[in-house]
């Protein structure tokens, strides 16, 4: 198999994604097939070819460091699953 069940689990952990025991095998099979297909790229000679990360050549876009209108606190918090006193509430991190 191109990608093992352990690797799928490892990568899912890196991505903070819980996957059910029953789905691991399915993901390994499907992603394995996709990776085998992606391996056809090895037939392409890319020696000395620079990588492209953006199709349009861009340089850094600078702007003046000026204060502008921004979201008020209420709007920024409006979609929070849990909030209190102007803060996002998360489960306790330090015991």
């Amino acid at each position: 198999m191109k990608i093992t069940k352990e690797e799928v689990l490892h990568v899912a952990n890196l991505a903070h994604l819980h996957i059910d025991e029953s789905s691991i095998e399915m993901f390994a099979g499907q992603i394995g097939t996709i990776l085998e297909y992606i391996d056809t790229l090895n037939r392409v000679d890319t020696k000395g070819v620079p990588p492209t990360t953006h199709a349009i050549s861009l340089t850094n876009a600078f702007r003046e460091d000026r204060e502008k209108e921004h979201l008020d606190r209420e709007s920024a918090l409006a979609n929070a699953p849990e909030q209190e006193d102007g803060n996002f509430i998360v489960p306790k991190v330090i015991g």
């Binding site: 790229l41 890319t46 620079p50 492209t52």
Partner: peptide
């Protein structure tokens, strides 16, 4: 990296 190089081609 490989995919980004083929993207250039």
């Amino acid at each position: 990296k490989k995919a980004s190089q083929v993207r250039t081609l």
